[in-house]
Structures are given as structure tokens and as C-alpha cells.
Amino acid sequence: TDCSIVSFLARLGCSSCLDYFTTQGLTTIYQIEHYSMDDLASLKIPEQFRHAIWKGILDHRQLHEF
């Protein structure tokens, strides 16, 4: 599957948040998979999107835990 942040955000309906990640040089889900809610806040992601992205990260982690 596509591991880009572009497609990750698109699946979550949060494509408008892409610039918050790319300006930090973040391009793949693996770069953010251990981010906390505070990390997302420090990227200045608007609160209404933060929870959806956080949930997406948690779902991603569960899929990749062996």
C-alpha cells in the first residue's frame, strides 16, 4: 500500500493539512507513526483535524505491530 502522507491524509479526509507535514520534510507515514497528540499540535495542525489524524496514526500502528 501507499505509505505517503499524501494518501494517508486523503484517506482520512484531511488533505488540507498536507502543508503542515511537508514544510517539516515529512513525506511518509513511517516518519510520523510514533507521533503523539502533542507532536501534531506542535505542527500547528488545526484541532478539528488533529483527532482524525491521531486516530489514523493509531490505526496504522495497530496494522503494523507484529
Rank of each mutant, 00 (worst) to 15 (best):
S16W: 04
S16M: 08
I32D: 01
C14Q: 04
P46S: 03
I29C: 10
C14F: 06
G25Y: 03
C14V: 12
T1S: 10
L40W: 01
S15L: 09
L58A: 14
S36K: 09
H34K: 13
S4D: 09
D19I: 08
S7K: 12
A52Y: 06
I32L: 09
I53K: 03
L26Y: 05
Y20D: 04
I32S: 00
D59N: 07
V6D: 13
Y20Q: 07
G13W: 01
T22W: 06
F8S: 01
Y20P: 03
S16F: 06
T1V: 09
M37E: 13
C17H: 02
G13K: 13
A52F: 10
A41E: 13
F8C: 02
G25C: 05
Q24H: 13
E65W: 06
D19T: 14
K44W: 05
L26T: 03
H64V: 13
H51M: 14
Q24A: 12
I53D: 01
E33T: 10
S42M: 14
S42P: 04
G13T: 04
D38N: 08
F8M: 11
D59W: 04
L9E: 02
R11N: 07
T28R: 09
G13H: 04
D59A: 14
Y30A: 13
E33M: 11
G56P: 00
R61N: 10
R50T: 09
A41I: 14
G56E: 04
V6G: 11
M37C: 07
L12G: 02
T1L: 13
G56Y: 02
I29W: 09
L58H: 11
F49S: 12
H51G: 12
C14L: 15
E47H: 08
A10D: 05
A41C: 15
G13L: 02
T27L: 07
Q24D: 05
I45N: 00
L63T: 14
S15H: 11
I57A: 03
G25S: 09
F8G: 00
T22I: 12
S36T: 12
C3M: 14
T22G: 06
G25D: 08
T1P: 02
I57E: 01
F66A: 15
S4Y: 04
L18T: 14
A10V: 05
D59F: 07
E33Q: 15
T23I: 08
R61M: 08
T23Y: 06
T1A: 08
Q24V: 10
Y30T: 14
R50D: 01
E65A: 14
D38T: 11
T28Q: 13
Y35H: 06
Y35V: 06
P46G: 03
C17V: 08
I57T: 03
I45H: 00
E65H: 08
T1C: 09
T27A: 06
D59Y: 09
L26F: 06
Y35I: 03
H60P: 03
Q62L: 10
L40V: 05
Q24F: 05
T22F: 06
D39S: 05
Y30S: 15
S15T: 14
C3V: 05
F66T: 05
S36P: 02
L40T: 00
F49E: 14
D38Q: 12
Q24Y: 05
T22C: 04
F21H: 00
A52D: 08
V6C: 06
S4N: 07
Y30P: 15
G13P: 00
C14T: 05
I32M: 04
T27N: 12
A52V: 13
C14R: 04
R50P: 01
E47S: 12
P46I: 00
Q48H: 14
I45D: 00
E33I: 05
A52I: 09
I57L: 12
K44M: 10
T1N: 10
F66I: 13
D39L: 04
I5V: 06
I5T: 02
T23Q: 14
K55I: 04
Q24T: 09
S36L: 04
L43F: 04
G25E: 08
K44D: 13
Q62Y: 07
D59Q: 12
Q48P: 14
T28A: 08
A10H: 05
K44G: 15
R50I: 15
S7Q: 08
S4R: 06
Q62K: 12
C3E: 10
Q48N: 14
S15D: 08
T27H: 14
C3L: 11
D2P: 05
I57V: 07
S7V: 09
H64A: 14
D2W: 03
C17R: 01
T28H: 09
A41Q: 14
Q24C: 10
S7I: 04
H51Q: 15
T22E: 13
S36V: 07
R50W: 05
D38L: 10
Q62R: 15
E65S: 09
W54C: 03
K44H: 08
I45G: 01
